[in-house]
Amino acid sequence: MARAFKSKVLTANRLIEGDVVYYAADGSWVGKHEDALLIEDEAEGNALLAEANKLANYLVGPYLADAILNDQGKPVPTHFREAFRTRGPSNYRHGKQAEV
């Protein structure tokens, strides 16, 4: 039996700035994880990833990362690596934690 699909967000780094972005429901790319579209269907995820791979002038290395909805219904990462990507480094208040 195929493994149950775990819900995801679609994420990448931007080509020019190098910062982390997420795919939102309206088709835009946003800086906040909580504004990302939670993808609950594997085929949809793969289709969106294939589209993202075509945005080579805007994105680098798009991929699907595990995420779930929190109590407020917002997508949150399940792995610490993805959680760090939503914030920035822990030694300075640089990156998203300072900007968003």
Partner: peptide, 25 residues
């Protein structure tokens, strides 16, 4: 940046010049 090079083409060139893409930047 203007799209003439794909990331796959560009990556080895940037690495030869010390430029990585890391987690946040």
């Amino acid at each position: 940046i203007d799209g003439s090079l794909t990331e796959n083409e560009f990556k080895p060139l940037r690495l030869m010049n010390g430029l990585y893409l890391q987690l946040h930047a």
